[in-house]
Simulated assay, not measured.
Amino acid sequence: MRETSHVHRLPVSTPTLFPATTTNVYVVEDQGQALLIDAGYENPAAAEHIIEYVKALGIDHLQGIVLTHHHPDHSPGARALADFFDCPILSHPLEAESINEKIAPRSVTSTLNEGDTIPVGGIIVSMLHAPGHTQGHLNLWLEEERLLFTGDNIVAEGTTWIGPPDGDLIDYLATLNRLRERAPALIAPGHGEMIRNPLEKIDFFIRRRLEREQQILGLLQQKPASVTDLVQAIYQGQVHPSVIWVAERTVSGHLEKLLKERRIKQEEDLYSLM
């Protein structure tokens, strides 16, 4: 579906995490050229839908497929799309190895870093290295429309999990503040509808992380606790058992941040205040 003069959003069914049920694939187009952002899960029906949509736009040249990060609800679909369009697959260098495992025998054609640009017709898409959810997460900026593609750093519903082995909460908060400084007019998230209150949404994500941090510190003030103890205290009855691992990684991410900041200490599996 067309969202702006240059951007189309294609939500494709994918095995992702609740509340999301789809992953957004974006088409950025101008003057008969286009760039795809993310590719979804490896799903023949989704690939056919994307291909037919791009063909219907009259696109005669696809600049490539930029993958925001390696997670399996964003990257494996690139194989079928690159085969059909005979176009490059692009990612940050820190994501390339993990993506290659998911798209073999294809591989990342070349890598993108902070400040790199891709021309699409008469418009320019710029790369932002935005670590947090993963180390090599890319966000993209379309100055023409002051539009920010955030991958999983910002999603439309709920929040995104940040924790080991990929995530780093210190990096993530720094990324959110950098994105806020861009003052986007619109956010195109990895999951869900377009976000039309960008600054309010970014502030919500920052506030939610800091509130969770204070909650963990409050629990540790009462007594030392393990990750399991903290997850039970915070999430009991709030998350389905099938995704309790997300809560565990989220808590672990907060604990890693607090350890790096020397605000807590660890003895075996127990954490306590300094």
Rank of each mutant, 00 (worst) to 15 (best):
F204L: 13
L210Y: 09
L199W: 06
Q215R: 14
R207E: 14
F204N: 07
F204H: 10
K201E: 10
L220I: 05
I216M: 03
I195N: 00
L219P: 03
I195V: 06
E200F: 04
L210C: 11
L219D: 01
R207T: 10
R209Q: 15
N197E: 14
I195P: 04
R208P: 00
I206Q: 06
L220R: 00
L219A: 05
E211L: 05
R209D: 13
P198L: 06
L210A: 04
Q214S: 08
L210M: 11
Q221E: 10
E213K: 12
L210G: 05
I195A: 03
L217D: 02
I195F: 02
E211M: 08
E211A: 07
E200K: 12
Q221C: 04
K201I: 11
M194W: 12
R208N: 11
I206G: 02
Q222Y: 02
R196H: 12
F205C: 10
I195H: 01
G218R: 07
E213A: 06
F205S: 04
L199H: 13
N197T: 15
F204A: 09
Q214N: 15
I202E: 00
R207K: 14
R207M: 07
Q214F: 07
R212A: 11
E211D: 07
E211F: 09
Q214E: 14
Q215S: 14
G218H: 05
R212S: 07
R209P: 01
M194L: 15
I216F: 01
E213L: 03
I206R: 04
Q215G: 13
G218D: 06
K223H: 14
Q215M: 13
I202C: 02
P198T: 02
R209I: 06
L210W: 12
L220S: 02
I206S: 04
L219T: 02
P198W: 05
L199I: 15
L219H: 02
K201Q: 12
R208D: 13
E200R: 10
Q214H: 11
I195L: 02
R212C: 03
Q222W: 03
L210P: 04
L217C: 01
R207A: 15
L210Q: 15
E211V: 10
L219S: 01
D203A: 11
K223N: 10
I202S: 00
P198R: 07
R208Q: 12
Q221K: 07
D203T: 09
E200P: 00
G218W: 07
E213M: 11
R208A: 12
E211C: 01
E200N: 07
L199F: 08
R212T: 12
L217Q: 01
K201H: 06
E200I: 08
F204R: 11
Q222F: 05
I195Y: 04
R196D: 09
M194F: 11
F204M: 08
F205G: 00
K223P: 02
Q222D: 13
L199Q: 14
I206H: 01
K223L: 06
E213C: 03
E211R: 08
E213Y: 05
I195C: 01
P198E: 01
M194I: 14
F204K: 10
M194H: 08
I195W: 03
I202K: 00
G218I: 04
L217T: 02
E213D: 03
I206E: 03
R207F: 12
Q215C: 11
E200M: 05
R196Y: 08
D203Q: 09
D203N: 12
N197G: 03
Q215I: 08
L217W: 00
K223Q: 15
L210F: 08
R209T: 10
R208I: 09
I202N: 00
R207L: 09
